[in-house]
């Protein structure tokens, strides 16, 4: 019976206290800034909310336009910030490099030193992008890491890793999937995932996109 087999595990703390000096330093700094009226707690909360509300939708619009308009793609590869502005997306002071996957080259992005990421176009980076495991391994065994994401790149295709070590941020234009001929930009944008713009996965196929909606 349930009463005989049901055993409680000892409770685990679910709200750990600050653990490092840096964590305490950050909390102290925040309290001081609020006490001195530099900003209010509500302003801080709203700034966090706005940061977390960013999504990869901006990046997906840029890619979908590049898929449908070769002249736009050329401008995007030459000056990504100006090309994003054409679509009404202001990426601010971010210096963006856009790289294109082709039949010959597959691009994948990492920041081995920290977690540099084009947040204005992709939102917040996923946890795996910031993990030591991804950062250490994708530079020295990229195909093995891609395989763990379910992505196999043909041996004859060059895998090009981009280590975002200084002032540039990177966005990958994935290959346009087959079977989406004649689609509108908005339809195509729905095939462009965050992971495809980091380079760890292809864009969705039309079939995969429609089964995901079901």
């Amino acid at each position: 019976m349930a009463e005989q087999t049901h055993q409680h595990r000892p409770p685990r703390p679910d709200d750990p206290e600050p653990t490092s000096d840096y964590h305490f330093l950050g909390l102290a700094m925040r309290e001081l800034l609020i006490e001195k009226g530099v900003f209010t707690a509500d302003e801080e909360r709203r700034a966090i909310e706005a940061m977390e509300a960013r999504s990869p939708a901006g990046g997906a619009r840029v890619v979908a336009r590049a898929w449908t308009d070769p002249d736009y793609k050329a401008r995007l590869l030459a000056d990504a910030a100006a090309a994003a502005r054409e679509l009404g997306i202001d990426i601010g002071p971010t210096r963006l490099v856009v790289v294109e996957n082709t039949a010959e080259v597959h691009n994948v992005v990492v920041c081995t030193l920290c977690s540099c990421y084009p947040r204005m176009l992709l939102g917040l980076p996923p946890a795996w992008y910031k993990s030591a495991n991804y950062r250490k391994r994708v530079v020295r065994e990229p195909r093995a890491v891609l395989a763990e994401f379910g992505t196999t790149i043909a041996e004859r295709v060059e895998v090009r890793v981009h280590d975002s070590t200084a002032d540039m941020r990177y966005l990958v234009v994935p290959l346009r999937p087959a079977g989406a001929e004649g689609w509108s930009e908005a339809q195509l944008a729905a095939l462009v995932t965050r992971d495809s713009m980091v380079g760890v996965a292809p864009a969705l196929s039309p079939d995969a996109a429609s089964s995901a909606r079901d």
Binding site: E141, P142, V159, T165
Partner: peptide, 20 residues
């Protein structure tokens, strides 16, 4: 990649680009 990592076991045409 084959220059960066002497034991690189994937594809010989693979490359890495970095900001310096």
């Amino acid at each position: 990649q084959t220059d960066l990592w002497p034991d690189y076991a994937e594809s010989p045409q693979d490359t890495l680009e970095i900001e310096i």
